[in-house]
Simulated assay, not measured.
Amino acid sequence: MADPGIIPLERAPSLGELALLQRAKALGFPVVPTWAVALEEEFYRLNNLPERIERLFAGVFGVRVDEERLLWAAEEAQRSVRESYLLPERAEAFLEAVKGRGPFVVRPLGGGPHPAPTPQEALFALKRLWAGAFRVEAILERHPRLLPPFIPYLVQEAGEVGEDPFFSLELSKALGERVVVFAHRGVVVRIEWEHGG
């Protein structure tokens, strides 16, 4: 049985861009091998990160933001995420799911791509993205919420991607709504609603 936290596109939850990719594939458009990875919440829980991060940020947000403490807490939170571990069986299931494949792009649902040449690098890229949620700008953007939303991350077998006007036009016609398609070597990687819709 496939690991529930590492889900092939066909069985992934139909939400946002995942739904667009599923619809494109069902319509016969070529879509790169894609997995939705929903392991962040478990990773936080098992490493006691919510409590640890809450302690780091104690006293940062009062009447005024303690900027010095914010910078320190942000760095420490990123380090805590980077130095924490997935369950070994989760890491093994991830590596098994993408074994013999690559290169990859790893990205949050609706976010920009991070290249990863190998399965191991794709796993490291996930943790770097999770840690990146504690950059100062990201923290201030979601304040007063301290923890990031636990969203699926996409791991896709693709290299450099670029906007594809032909696919954008054809898929917009097929879907009946305007979308922008990004592709790698003639295969769909990413779909966005036009103007971020």
Rank of each mutant, 00 (worst) to 15 (best):
L86Q: 06
E92F: 05
E96N: 13
E75Y: 00
V105H: 09
R82M: 13
P88H: 03
S84E: 03
R79Q: 05
Y85R: 10
R107L: 14
E92C: 01
V81P: 01
V106T: 09
P108E: 15
G100P: 11
V106I: 12
R101F: 14
V105Y: 07
A74N: 11
A91P: 00
E92G: 04
E76D: 01
G102H: 07
R107E: 11
G102V: 10
R90T: 14
E92V: 06
E89K: 07
V98I: 14
G110M: 11
L95Y: 14
R82G: 02
E76S: 09
R82Q: 07
K99E: 15
G102P: 06
V105C: 13
L87G: 00
E83R: 09
E76Y: 01
A91H: 01
A74F: 07
V81E: 04
E76F: 01
P88N: 03
F94D: 06
E75V: 00
G110R: 11
F94M: 06
R82A: 08
G100D: 13
E76W: 02
E75L: 05
V106R: 05
A73M: 03
R101A: 15
G111H: 10
R107A: 09
W72R: 12
A97P: 05
V81C: 04
A73C: 04
V81L: 02
A91D: 03
L109Y: 12
V98D: 09
A93R: 02
A97L: 07
L86K: 00
W72K: 06
S80C: 00
A77M: 00
Y85K: 04
E83C: 02
S80N: 00
A97F: 10
L95P: 13
G102L: 08
F104H: 08
S84C: 04
E76C: 02
Y85A: 08
R101E: 15
A93S: 11
A77R: 01
R107H: 15
A74T: 10
L95M: 13
V105F: 08
F104R: 06
R90F: 07
E89V: 05
R90K: 13
P88W: 03
K99T: 05
A97W: 10
R90E: 13
